[in-house]
Design a protein around this nucleic acid. Structure first.
Length: 515
RNA sequence: GCUCCGGUGGUGUAGUCCGGCCAAUCAUUUCGGCCUUUCGAGCCGAAGACUCGGGUUCAAAUCCCGGCCGGAGCACCA
């Protein structure tokens, strides 16, 4: 019986239900689920006033798509809440520094359209880290550990304290003061956490160690180096971070860092962890890319096979495409798999409007058309064909091609049957004889002719196109392409979108984006 | 192995916190059709998903338990 009533009521719309309730004299409390949905990214948790965020790359190479995954949402949120974005270059491991990257990072961010309010280099901040190390030692929150790494691990894995842990702050300070004279591995500074923490990774982590290598930026000025977890937590606090966006591989690190915040009595920022981005085909790490460049396998950081931002920019992928993609993926913790297809689809949407159209003939095959006396005579033996630069934007004007019967067409289109040369005439290909068939578009349609692009045999320019696998295809494009500027993105009709990369003496070199 | 974290169409997402017009959003993709002197764009249509099993409840994508699958971490790297 009651089930029946419920079913009946559930059958009503919410409005109908509300009316019935009001009829019964019951007041409905409207609890607003105040969730005006923002386009794109979800709202940030916590405070929305005075938002400070950071993008903190390691200077090991230029930015790649994976970096954009962190950089774009940071930029977006800072814009949305009118906050501040800090670029912090995390160069506390001399082994993972590629000196040119310091500048490349900033160039790449600029390309992405992300505005940075402040820049910091961690290698400039070592004295600050030392200062806080000393404070922590004095508080008894950190200790100098002189145990062998293996011994410590054994104890740690059994929830056992190492002997150093119970040293007094005074004793620790004594060792700390001799730190710079020690050998690598002889001692480290550890932050006390919970030696019985159920995740062994969290237990008493290393904050500072000795590094002998020369630092590419600051040389041999220091031997005492902070670990990432230490410098990051100190800086995030000192720089006033309200929200920290990082990959979920840092989940345990966030937890480690919380102990530091607690020791110092600092407010913990909102940590947000996003999932892994799996990108098909470009599993290339920065270090592998660098090795490939040095071996000559890749032409440089912008080799079309690489996933660096400069490589995809060179191919004509728009920064807005990357931006759109990252906003769509968002910052959820589950992993995402991205395909080139997806990127190309978004990019096509962005390019469609701006890319003007031109003819390009791949693997040209020269054809001399016979039977043109149907349209030409001795006074009149050529025709100027005009075709819009963009079919939806006629105001951009036309390009002109001279049609005189001698043309190049793509080899792949040289097959028997009726074919229409776009905007010109319909031809009949019969083995090696090519003859005039008819003139109009209507006839071509009636004959179900394929409609192809072409270039005049006597008026064209060589074009090379670097494909996404770095192979090069060659052909001829229409002479009007001479007016293009480097960086222009256009669509070769029936071929795909390309970006003009280089203007050589007698040829144009393009990079292929996608169909 | 241990510790964490995830799982919505092929892909990317919305919805999950606070169960109820969710027979589940939007985009992309794929396939049709229309249009079109590009195989592009546009328009129309279609296909396609709540990981599984239990439980709680009138009602579960949503809450609870368990399984399965996937990922990450377990450094004197970041």
């Amino acid at each position: 019986m009651s089930a029946k009533i419920v079913a009946e009521i559930n059958g009503l719309t919410v409005e109908e239900q509300e009316q019935k309730i009001e009829k019964l004299g019951i007041e409905i409390k409207k609890e607003e689920k105040s969730k005006e949905k923002e386009e794109g990214l979800v709202d940030l948790p916590g405070k929305h006033k005075g938002v400070v965020m950071r993008f903190a790359p390691n200077p090991s190479g230029p930015l790649h798509i994976g970096h954009a995954r962190a950089a774009v949402p940071n930029g977006e949120y800072v814009d949305r809440y009118d906050g501040k974005l800090i670029l912090r270059i995390e160069d506390t491991d001399p082994k993972r520094i590629y000196l040119p990257a310091y500048d490349m990072l900033q160039e790449d961010l600029e390309w992405l359209g992300i505005n940075i309010d402040e820049i910091y280099y961690q290698s400039d901040r070592f004295p600050i880290y030392y200062e806080y190390a000393e404070k922590l030692i004095e508080n008894g929150a950190a200790y100098m550990c002189t145990c062998d790494g293996g011994d410590f691990k054994k104890l740690k894995d059994e929830c056992q304290e190492c002997p150093c842990r119970s040293n007094s702050p005074e004793k620790n300070m004594e060792i700390w003061n001799k730190f710079s004279e020690m050998e690598p591995g002889q001692a480290v500074l550890r932050i006390k956490t919970d030696i019985k923490h159920k995740n062994p990774a969290i237990r008493d982590w290393v904050a500072i160690r000795i590094v002998e290598e020369e630092h590419p930026r600051i040389g041999t000025k220091y031997r005492i180096y902070p670990m990432m977890n230490f410098s990051v937590a100190i800086d995030d606090h000192l720089m006033g971070m309200t929200h920290v966006l990082r990959g979920k591989d840092h989940l345990a690190n966030s937890e480690k860092q919380k102990y530091l915040y607690e020791h110092m009595n600092w407010e913990v920022p909102e940590f947000i962890h996003y999932g892994r981005l799996k990108m098909e085909d470009i599993a290339l790490s920065t270090s592998k890319a660098l090795a490939g460049i040095e071996e000559g396998k890749y032409s440089g950081w912008d080799d079309p096979r690489l996933g660096t931002l400069r490589a995809i920019a060179r191919r004509g992928i728009q920064n807005k495409t990357i931006h759109d993609l990252m906003v769509e993926i968002g910052i959820k913790m589950s992993d995402s798999a991205i395909s080139w297809k997806k990127i190309y689809g978004l990019n096509r949407n962005n390019l469609e409007e701006k890319a003007n159209r031109y003819f390009f003939v791949l693997n040209p095959k020269k054809v001399e058309i016979t039977g043109l006396d149907n349209i030409f005579d001795e006074n009149f033996d050529e025709e100027i064909i005009e075709r819009p630069l963009h079919p939806d934007h006629l105001e951009r004007g036309n390009r002109k091609l001279v049609f005189d019967g001698d043309v190049y067409i793509p080899k792949a289109d040289f097959t028997n049957g009726i074919t229409r040369l776009m905007d010109a005439i319909n031809i009949n290909i019969d083995e090696n004889n090519v003859s005039y068939n008819s003139k109009t578009f209507e006839e071509a349609r009636k004959l179900k002719a394929r409609i192809i692009q072409w270039v005049p045999a006597n008026d064209n320019i060589k074009a090379k196109i670097v494909m996404d696998d770095a192979s090069i295809v060659e052909g001829l494009c229409e002479i009007k392409c001479m007016n293009l500027k480097i960086g222009d993105i256009l669509q070769f009709e029936r071929f795909g979108f390309v970006r003009l990369d280089e203007i050589a003496a007698d040829e144009l070199i393009f990079y292929f984006a996608h169909k």
